[in-house]
Each structure stands twice: as C-alpha cells, then as structure tokens.
Design a protein around this nucleic acid. Structure first.
Lengths: 219, 219
DNA sequence: AGACATTCTTGATGCATATCAATTAAATCC
DNA sequence: GGATTTAATTGATATGCATCAAGAATGTCT
C-alpha cells in the first residue's frame, strides 16, 4: 500500500497548490524489510515521511539490547520533533516490511509555518506525539512486568493471536521467559485462558487491579 | 520574583492588545511551599502558567516512591501538552518554594492559534518540551546509575555544592546509598575529588567514557 | 506422517540496585 | 562549644528481572 502526501495527517489540510509544491520537492526512496532508515544519533535536513510500510523505533542499551519505543505504519511522519528541533534522532528506525520514504527538505516545511491551518495541524500532531512518548515513559518507568502484560491483555488482546510471544516480549521490553512465566501465573490464577493462540479474559477486574496498582492516586 | 505574561516565552511575541486581553482573563493564585498544584490524573480547563517560584513534577510508583521528572522555574508553562491534548496530567506538580500560578481558560489560548506568530512560538515551545521528555526517557531507560551520576558530574557539577546528596539522589531517581557508593568508587579511582562540598573533576575522559558506554552508535 | 527447526516453558543462577539497619560524620542550635 | 538533629557512609540482605541452559511443545516442510 503506497500513500501520497495528502494522506499524511500533517498535510491533510493543505491546498492543492501547496501539495503540488511539496510534491515537487519530495524525493522518494524505497527500502527493503530490515533495512535501517536512520540510526540513533544521526541528523537529517529532511522531514522523513513514511509513505509505505511499517517501521520500528528503538534505542540501544550499553549491553547492545534494544528498547522498543514505537511502531509507525504509513502514512505517518517519522522523527517529527527531532526534525523541528534540529537535534539528532533519539532512536534507530528500522523497516519491519518493505517500505517507502518521502524526503522533504526542512526549509519547505518551514515555509508552511505561516499558514495557520498548517500550524494548527502541526501542533495537534506534535501534542499527540508527546502523549505517545509520555505514555511510553509511564509504561517503562512505572509499570512492572506484570502490569505491562496485564495492560496488553486488557487493551490489545488480539496481539496474542497475531504475534509470537517473543515478539510481544520484545515490544514490552521484557524477556520471553518473563512473559511466559507471567502468563502461566495468570492462567493458574484463572484470570485468563489461552487456547490455540486465542486469549480469553476470565477476570478483567483482577487484571485491571494489577494495572491500577501502578496508577496510584494520592487524593 | 514575580513575572508577567509577557515574560513567558509562549506569549513573548504577542501584541500589547493580545496581552491585555489575556491578562483580563487570567486569574492568579498564590501557593505556599510544598503545596500541590495538581495530582497525576487530574484534568483542568485552564492553561497553568508558573509566574513565581519553582515546581517539581513527579510520578508515583505502585510502592509509593516518586519518579522525579522535571523542575520548572518561573516564568514557564506547566503541563503544556496535557492542556492542549485535554488529557489528564501525567504527573503530580508540587511547589518547591512559595509560588504563583496564572490560570488562563483554554478557550482564550485557542483563540490565539490563528495568529501565526503565536503558533510558531507554541510549536517551538512544544518541541523543546518534547526534547526534555525524550532526554528524560533516555536517562531513565538507557543510563545505569553510574552513567546518571557521571552525567551530572560532567554537566552540572555545581549541584554538589548547592544540594544535599539526598536531594541529588532523588532527582536522579536513585537512592542516596547508591549515590554515596558510586561517588566513593569514583573518588577511589581518582576520577573526582570532593572537598567541602566542592567537586573537582580529575579525569573527565573516564567519566565521559562511562556516559558514552550508554550511547552506543552502531555505525 | 516423520524429521527438523523454531518457539515456549521451566529451573538455576546472576546482577544491578533497593531496602533495612547500624555507625559515623557533619550541620545546627541554644 | 558541647548537645542534638540531620545527613552520609557502610555492610548485610532482598527483590525483580535478566541470563543461561536444558527440555518440551509446536510449527513447517517434503
């Protein structure tokens, strides 16, 4: 599936003329699965627009292990704030599928900032990104492994049929062993059951309690 | 020290008239040291502007311990993205000194969004906040305790004369014991010396190496 | 269906840092 | 300037998860 500039939320409210100008300055490159778009620490003078495929953003620890941050599926802007702040990318971006990137020179984006429709869209996209990062921070610093797992079970139970446990573990930044042990524990406590990769929630309350224990209100 | 709206970066480029309109709708409240401006999970229909004093933002873990996030000193906007995204505050905000908050109804801020000067300032302020959060995420997920400590020693050595070790530890989200042990280790290795609360760096290279070990480039 | 590869599970051990507890050092107060 | 409070150090132990290692279960291929 390949997208165009107008399909990207950030550009959705631009006029035909504005889109055409942008289109003229965009150059498109194709990437194959597993290739790296950029590494943590790189810089770029282009806004990088994911027009096809899915990418994964992650940091690398001192020991070489990876901290998963986000998945982005086209159409989407990658590394939005890093582009605007002109700082180096805080994470590595790798293709999970074959994909396609549109490179738009940052100057061309700056030229749009006078357009208040564009600015408002940009503000909205930025704050949504901020929420994404803020939620990630919460998961990684406040949640225990159990809470992370309870959280996906409640909010995204279908991943258990779509992905292998090793993949789920890597997204949650825990080891497959910990995931396996915790799922066994939940099964023993009759909070969930898993049959042929289909997860059924038996005691939502108990799961929510595990998550909530990690969102203490001090009122 | 008390500030006015025009001293806040976000409003610095507004016209006299715009400022006067805002001023008319702002209501100001004074807070005493240690009081809480808002709790994690709260919502507000106002943009909260710190016009005097210093606040601290932190999350609370399941066990009741606190994860320090930021210090903000007036003049500054607190909880900027949460206001714009209309989501609940991701952290608790507490005064470290006596202070003063200006409450501005969000509608009044929205009215400014048509002004492209304002929008551009807002975009710039938002991306800077994003960098703050991104750096915090990096410190908390990638850095080891040693790296955190090496980092403050290199980038902010004066804190050791300004703050008690318990306070430094709490900002770094480590225990005073760990801080003490690590500083002793650095002293034994002749990387630093501390005399009457004044820290002297003896081997910057060695410290930087500890930090860099946590910023791997895979090129 | 049988064979090989991959993934999952389970147990043993390791590691970084927190927690608990006691002692020592430093700061503050009358 | 000694007494008292507060902070820093040091050692022993606990904890939550990762790592290592093997075996069991499941998936894939011809």
């Amino acid at each position: 599936m390949e997208f165009e500039l107008k399909d990207v939320t950030l550009f959705s409210r631009l006029s035909k003329e504005q889109l055409e100008t942008l289109q003229f300055h965009v150059h498109v490159r194709h990437y194959s699965k597993d290739s790296v778009l950029f590494y943590e620490g790189d810089k770029s003078a282009y806004l990088q627009i994911l027009l096809g495929g899915t990418v994964r953003l992650y940091k690398t620890t001192a020991k070489g292990s990876q901290i998963h941050m986000h998945h982005f599926t086209a159409p989407e802007i990658v590394a939005l704030y890093a582009a605007f702040e002109k700082v180096s990318f805080p994470a590595t971006c790798e293709f999970l599928t074959d994909g396609m990137i549109g490179f738009l020179p940052l100057e061309k984006v700056y030229e749009l900032l006078g357009d208040s429709d564009f600015s408002m869209t940009l503000i909205s996209v930025l704050t949504k990104r901020m929420k994404l990062l803020s939620d990630l921070f919460h998961r990684e610093t406040i949640y225990t492994s159990e809470a992370k797992i309870a959280d996906v079970i409640c909010n995204n139970p279908t991943v258990f049929s779509r992905l292998k446990n090793t993949e789920i573990a890597s997204i949650l930044n825990i080891t497959p062993e910990t995931l396996s042990r915790t799922l066994t524990k939940f099964k023993n406590k009759k909070m969930i059951s898993i049959d042929h990769h289909v997860l059924t929630i038996l005691q939502k309350d108990a799961l929510i309690e595990i998550i909530e224990a990690n969102i203490i209100s001090k009122h």
